[in-house]
């Protein structure tokens, strides 16, 4: 196994992992604020990718405007979904909220299928022109670097919002104790909307970048990816954004290296998912609250 191969796999792992990470952030933030597992989140990621098709193919926009358009429109969709579908159930049972989320996911998948048909879509040739650079003897693709760097920047931006701004403080405060938050002069609805804006905006960015890296978009693409990102969020410690990001990266590495290192031993790539999930389950057995999670204090 030569070094160049390893470097390529390393970049692949970072690329895949940072995409999982961007999606996992949305699961973890919504859970932190609402204690709701938003099972429609994978499908929101899919919508983001398809809005990229809309921006690039229909409106003929270049990459950056398409990315921004998709993030904004998807964020609006996220807020609308919360207001229409989840808010009325805020005091209902956990189960009805989960079922509603699954229903919203089905609606998005089938709505997109009806709208665009079953043929796989991709972005135009000139959306991102792939180039390969030679760096110290290793060939490095601009697409991978773009995806990795952009994901890290988006994460750092989110982290700064959550740690440094009053809105981020309010998000953290809600996840600790909802009761006292309105007494600080904070509108809980506003903070919940903001959470959905951030989470779904990042999922849209992940959707576009996914479509650039793996150019076969279909209305069901959010299912598998969404589940994996959810598991990444749980492994990271659901409710903690550092955990979600790390969990996503970890899952990317496990998946890529199970295939890369397994091949010489005759382990076929169909074993990728079972082995990846088994490893993650082991982490959860050892640390049930995930990498960054702390057991929730029981509140009175």
């Amino acid at each position: 196994m030569d070094l160049n191969f390893l470097v390529q796999q390393f970049l692949n792992a970072l690329q895949l992992g940072s995409l999982y990470a961007l999606i996992a952030l949305g699961y973890t933030m919504v859970y932190g604020v609402l204690l709701l597992i938003n099972f429609a989140h994978g499908d929101i990621f899919m919508v983001g990718a398809f809005l990229g098709v809309f921006g690039s193919m229909v409106l003929n926009l270049p990459f950056v405007p398409t990315l921004l358009l998709s993030m904004v429109l998807t964020a609006i969709l996220g807020v609308v979904i919360e207001r229409v579908a989840y808010k009325p159930l805020r005091h209902a049972s956990r189960l009805s909220a989960v079922i509603t989320a699954l229903g919203v996911g089905l609606l998005l998948e089938n709505g997109m299928l009806a709208l665009t048909g079953a043929d796989p879509r991709n972005y135009p040739e000139n959306f991102i022109v792939t180039e390969t650079y030679d760096v110290a003897g290793f060939s490095i693709s601009n697409v991978k670097i773009l995806i990795i760097v952009l994901s890290i920047l988006l994460f750092l931006g989110l982290y700064a919002i959550v740690q440094r701004t009053k809105w981020g403080m309010a998000m953290r405060a809600i996840s600790y104790d909802k009761f006292a938050v309105p007494l600080m002069g904070v509108s809980q609805d506003q903070i919940i909307s903001l959470t959905f804006i951030l989470g779904t905006g990042l999922a849209a960015a992940a959707g576009i970048l996914w479509g650039v890296a793996f150019p076969v978009l279909n209305p069901y693409m959010g299912l598998r990816v969404g589940w994996k990102a959810f598991i990444a969020a749980v492994v990271g410690g659901i409710g903690d954004i550092r955990g979600a990001f790390l969990g996503g990266l970890l899952l990317g590495f496990v998946e890529i290296f199970v295939v890369a290192l397994g091949q010489p031993f005759g382990i076929s790539s169909t074993w990728r998912d079972p082995i990846a999930f088994a490893l993650l389950l082991i982490i959860l057995v050892v640390r049930p609250t995930g990498l960054f999670g702390v057991a929730r204090r029981q509140k009175v």
């Binding site: 403080m169 953290r172 405060a173 006292a180 007494l183």
Partner: peptide, 26 residues
């Protein structure tokens, strides 16, 4: 108007400063 609720209800995951900062949200 401000209420100091029963049981204090401090945000334990925020620092002292952040608790005060949040109280001045508006």
């Amino acid at each position: 108007m401000a209420l100091v609720p029963e049981g204090r209800r401090i945000f334990g995951n925020l620092t002292v400063y952040e608790n005060l900062r949040l109280a001045g949200f508006q």
